[in-house]
């Protein structure tokens, strides 16, 4: 990615594909991010790939972000950014983490391994790889191994589609009707920490 803000720089759509297991919050994250960028005056589209909805089953989510209204309604075949919430999916050919990726694709992986290690594992020499220990951060801050919100925090260190403060504002709006202040504070802390602890090469 030539600019840290792909959508603004190119006028093109940013297409994000999420890989996760049921229960890790990828559906929520994919849809939440699409809603959150509205605060920034951008258009968002977010949807999961609905299949057998089982906890632990591999699943995908999709987010599109654009300066212009988004018209297409198809799956994302050539993502600009791939976010992996569960590192065990890197070993699963069926999960298709690298499908449709190529030069310039950004990988953001929830892992304790290094970006170089992930690059070798995925065999993606032309891509940028970033890692963050989102599960560890979620356990510390939220008390549960749900890496979705920290991954969005880390994403904002990779692409400044919105600021961390804007994200946190949207997050409070999203969570305040359903969750306790402790849960909200935990998520906000998780976003902050992941944004700072992103590991690049």
């Amino acid at each position: 990615m030539s600019s840290p803000n792909a959508a603004a720089a190119t006028g093109q759509m940013v297409e994000i594909r999420w890989h996760a297991r049921g229960g890790q919050g990828a559906k929520t994250a994919a849809m939440f991010l699409a809603e959150a960028v509205l605060e920034k005056g951008k258009y968002g589209q977010g949807f999961p790939e609905y299949g057998p909805e089982r906890r632990g089953a591999p699943m995908r989510g999709y987010t599109r972000i654009s300066e212009k209204p988004i018209r297409r309604h198809c799956m994302i075949e050539n993502p600009g950014i791939v976010i992996v919430l569960d590192p065990s999916l890197l070993d699963s050919p069926a999960a298709g983490v690298t499908a449709g990726t190529g030069k310039g694709t950004v990988f953001l992986v929830n892992t304790t391994e290094s970006p170089a290690f992930i690059r070798d594992k995925l065999k993606v020499k032309d891509s940028k790889v970033f890692t963050v220990d989102a599960t560890g951060i979620a356990l510390d801050t939220i008390g549960r191994p749900i890496p979705n919100m920290p991954m969005i925090g880390a994403l904002l260190a990779v692409d400044d589609m919105m600021t961390v403060e804007e994200l946190k504002g949207a997050l409070v709006g999203q969570l305040s009707s359903k969750f306790s202040q402790a849960v909200i504070d935990g998520n906000l802390a998780a976003v902050d920490r992941a944004n700072k602890e992103l590991v690049s090469e």
């Binding site: 994919a30 699409a34 968002g44 589209q45 949807f47 309604h73």
Partner: peptide
């Protein structure tokens, strides 16, 4: 309106 494609997609 199209199931999932519209019904379950976050849109503006």
């Amino acid at each position: 309106y199209d199931g999932f494609i519209i019904s379950h997609t976050a849109d503006s």
